[in-house]
Simulated assay, not measured.
Amino acid sequence: MTKREFIQFNRKWHRYLGAILGIQFFLWTIGGLYFSWTNIDEIRGDHLKKKHILPSLNDTLVSPSQFLLKENIPKDSILTLELTSILNDPIYRIVYNSGGERKVVLTHALTGELKKPLSENEAVQMAKEGLAVDAPLTEVTYLTESGKHHEYRGRPLPAYAITFGEPANTTVYVSPEYGSIQTFRSNKWRAFDFLWMLHTMDYEGRDNFNNLLLRAFAVFGLFTILSGFTLFVLTSKRFSRKKHKFRK
């Protein structure tokens, strides 16, 4: 292959790869601009979250060992045991492993009695108390499943999706079994999540940086850069003059 033929071949592939990769590079740039120009705390909804404070306790709490024995929960199966509050009521939340599955038990810390999962009214009240701004309630949805692209993916189910209007414009997800707010999702987060999917090129689950498509584009991008450098050297008059002088 002559030098001219090699340059034409290199230029052809450089042009095609540049056209294809240019679209993805443009999407990466748009995502990078959004990520760098937005406040991550606002995307996470931290500015809308009211700090959860455990109420002052004047009474003696029941020992966790009492209800562990009562519910026949082996101590070596416990993943977490924490004292929290649900609607100003002190509660023990026990997360344990049973047959390979994660289960949750809520128990009143003052009496040792079991607490049932949150009702819809309790979940709504918890969402309102957890929101740092006053906003009208617009919708309540009970979720029993969520897909790989759902904004509540990867979190405990079932859950109540409690949506508030302006100025919050946010959906608060409450787990009835955990008795807690799991996450806040706003339009800023949704835009972030969509651009993140384009950034990782994981169109199935959004969070896999090791997918084949991303790897392929990275390799093709390297080829495009190298072909561009090669074209610059082979077609540059400066390099040609230096090579000509060296031969003389």
Results as ranks from 00 to 15, higher is better:
residue 140 V to C: 00
residue 99 G to Y: 10
residue 179 G to S: 04
residue 60 T to V: 14
residue 128 K to M: 04
residue 97 N to S: 14
residue 50 K to A: 11
residue 197 M to P: 04
residue 178 Y to H: 15
residue 108 H to T: 13
residue 67 F to W: 11
residue 134 D to F: 13
residue 214 L to Q: 07
residue 43 I to S: 03
residue 139 E to W: 03
residue 112 G to S: 08
residue 160 Y to E: 03
residue 133 V to K: 06
residue 111 T to H: 04
residue 218 A to M: 05
residue 187 N to L: 11
residue 70 K to A: 15
residue 29 T to L: 15
residue 170 T to S: 08
residue 187 N to P: 00
residue 218 A to Q: 01
residue 108 H to K: 15
residue 154 G to C: 07
residue 191 A to L: 12
residue 53 I to Q: 14
residue 216 A to I: 14
residue 166 E to H: 10
residue 73 I to A: 03
residue 17 L to A: 00
residue 84 T to Y: 07
residue 139 E to K: 14
residue 140 V to Y: 04
residue 107 T to M: 15
residue 151 E to W: 08
residue 141 T to P: 08
residue 129 E to G: 09
residue 43 I to G: 00
residue 42 E to T: 13
residue 241 R to Y: 10
residue 109 A to D: 04
residue 171 T to S: 10
residue 103 K to M: 12
residue 181 I to M: 09
residue 65 S to I: 07
residue 157 L to D: 01
residue 47 H to D: 11
residue 94 I to M: 03
residue 73 I to F: 05
residue 140 V to T: 11
residue 24 Q to N: 02
residue 230 T to Y: 06
residue 133 V to E: 04
residue 13 W to F: 13
residue 25 F to R: 12
residue 226 L to T: 06
residue 26 F to R: 10
residue 166 E to T: 09
residue 76 D to K: 13
residue 36 S to D: 12
residue 147 G to F: 11
residue 55 P to S: 07
residue 125 Q to W: 00
residue 128 K to C: 00
residue 219 V to C: 13
residue 164 F to M: 03
residue 18 G to L: 04
residue 46 D to F: 13
residue 58 N to V: 11
residue 4 R to A: 13
residue 41 D to V: 08
residue 127 A to L: 08
residue 216 A to S: 12
residue 75 K to N: 15
residue 238 R to P: 01
residue 126 M to Q: 09
residue 72 N to G: 00
residue 24 Q to G: 02
residue 84 T to F: 02
residue 69 L to E: 13
residue 163 T to F: 00
residue 234 L to A: 08
residue 153 R to K: 13
residue 107 T to Y: 13
residue 3 K to D: 08
residue 70 K to F: 13
residue 235 T to N: 04
residue 50 K to C: 05
residue 113 E to K: 15
residue 173 Y to E: 03
residue 211 N to Y: 09
residue 31 G to Y: 02
residue 20 I to N: 06
residue 65 S to D: 02
residue 140 V to I: 12
residue 67 F to G: 05
residue 55 P to Q: 11
residue 190 R to P: 00
residue 184 F to K: 05
residue 214 L to H: 09
residue 115 K to F: 06
residue 77 S to V: 01
residue 85 S to P: 06
residue 155 R to W: 09
residue 114 L to A: 04
residue 1 M to L: 14
residue 202 D to Q: 13
residue 91 I to F: 02
residue 34 Y to R: 01
residue 87 L to I: 13
residue 8 Q to L: 15
residue 152 Y to M: 10
residue 9 F to D: 14
residue 229 F to C: 14
residue 187 N to Y: 10
residue 207 D to H: 14
residue 189 W to H: 02
residue 78 I to K: 11
residue 240 S to Y: 04
residue 235 T to M: 12
residue 88 N to P: 03
residue 165 G to I: 07
residue 162 I to Q: 05
residue 127 A to P: 02
residue 213 L to I: 08
residue 77 S to G: 01
residue 110 L to R: 12
residue 190 R to W: 05
residue 74 P to W: 07
residue 171 T to P: 00
residue 12 K to E: 05
residue 194 F to L: 08
residue 19 A to T: 15
residue 120 E to C: 12
residue 221 G to K: 07
residue 235 T to H: 09
residue 210 N to D: 10
residue 19 A to L: 15
residue 56 S to K: 14
residue 136 P to G: 00
residue 53 I to L: 14
residue 206 R to A: 03
residue 90 P to N: 09
residue 14 H to D: 08
residue 210 N to T: 08
residue 226 L to M: 12
residue 133 V to Y: 05
